[in-house]
């Protein structure tokens, strides 16, 4: 029997299984043991493993990140949780100057096995400081690994992989992906870096979606099919290290690449992916490219502007159509039943 779990429960199960297997795994962060239990992802863990291994912390992101590093140096495998990725900005010194650097600058004498779980917010007026996708900041820094699973199966496998990994891993969730449901095996399994996944095959264009934007790309593919454009949709899963080979192979076939990021385009993951593909294929294959992401502005909470701020299935389909046909065609598909984004009702 195939088992269906939510993204939330997949994270909870991965954590539970790794904690059961490995007594060095500890979980902490603001509110991990409170009644809402980080949207349910830590539900029951404090009861099961006790307050020494699962604990809420003071509001002290920098110190607790530094403490996580200390624990990791001593042989623990800390999972430090933040309900918003934006809060990682308070911990940048520890993450960038210490966690990322320790293995190298100490000549391999030490390593820092820790997982930083964080969530990107969206809609319901999350606005300026609760909606940023800052994964590219971390991709920039050697020594950090970055993963952004987009479905429950990967959520579980990537978290197990991240916990087992001997380096610091930034594990990027998205509030809207938390509602995803899908097949999740009961046993433990890891999803290692180096294997981007081709979710749908297609001959006309390669569509790479990051985090929540992957789901928009899958919907865009449905719109494109109606006009006989066939998109190959790829989920990179791990952003650092990035499996560029799978994307290169696809673009070699299609000659067209559109990368849709859940973040800004400038200096972002989309810039990196496009550049690496072109570096590989220049002189060998004519390639046209396009990038989409957040509008180059601060996230506006008002729905009228927020709708324009994010790419969506229809705007992606429209841009891909132009990429395939050339020029500006002003084609925008009619909204179709079953292809809208899931409605999210606040407060959070």
């Amino acid at each position: 029997m195939e088992r269906i779990l939510s993204y939330v429960d997949a994270i909870r199960e991965a954590t539970d299984q790794q904690m059961a297997e490995d007594p060095s795994v500890v979980v902490f962060g603001l509110d991990v043991d409170d009644p809402k239990a980080i949207q349910g992802t830590t539900r029951g863990l404090a009861e099961k493993y006790g307050p020494e291994r699962v604990f809420g912390t003071p509001l002290s992101e920098e110190a607790m990140t530094g403490a996580a590093i200390g624990m990791a140096l001593a042989g623990l495998r800390p999972i430090h949780i933040h309900i918003r990725m934006d809060f990682l900005m308070l911990a940048m010194n520890q993450l960038v100057n210490v966690a990322a650097k320790s293995r190298y600058m100490y000549g391999g004498q030490v390593h820092v096995p820790m997982v930083v779980r964080c969530m990107i917010g969206k809609s319901w007026g999350q606005g300026a400081q609760h909606s940023q996708g800052l994964h590219s900041f971390f991709m920039h820094v050697p020594g950090l690994k970055v993963v952004a699973p987009t479905n429950p199966y990967d959520a579980k496998g990537c978290l197990i992989q991240a916990i087992r990994d001997n380096d610091p891993v930034i594990y990027v969730e998205h509030r809207i992906l938390h509602f995803q449901k899908g097949i999740v095996p009961e046993e433990r399994y890891g999803i290692p870096p180096g294997r981007a996944r081709v979710l749908e095959e297609g001959r006309d264009v390669t569509l790479v979606g990051i985090s929540h934007m992957l789901t928009e790309c899958l919907r865009a593919r449905c719109y494109l099919e109606t006009i006989n454009v066939h998109a190959e949709v790829i989920d990179p899963i791990w952003l650092s290290p990035l499996d560029i080979e799978t994307i290169v192979k696809s673009v070699k076939k299609t000659g067209r690449l559109c990368v849709v990021d859940n973040g800004w385009t400038t200096c972002g993951a989309s810039a990196e992916i496009v550049t690496r593909v072109i570096e590989r294929l220049q002189g060998e294959r004519e390639v046209v490219v396009h990038r989409m992401g957040y509008a180059p502005a601060t996230c506006p909470p008002t729905p009228s502007l927020e709708d324009l701020y994010y790419p969506n299935a229809r705007t992606i389909a429209s841009a891909v159509y132009d990429l395939v046909k050339g020029g500006r065609n002003h084609w925008l598909p009619e909204e179709r039943e079953g292809l809208q984004e899931m409605e999210f009702r606040g407060p959070f």
């Binding site: 606005g127 400081q129 909470p301 729905p303």
Partner: peptide, 15 residues
Amino acid sequence: GKATGCAKGKGGSMH
């Protein structure tokens, strides 16, 4: 979230 808001709808309740 209206244009006449104190931050033109670009801040929201928290700002």
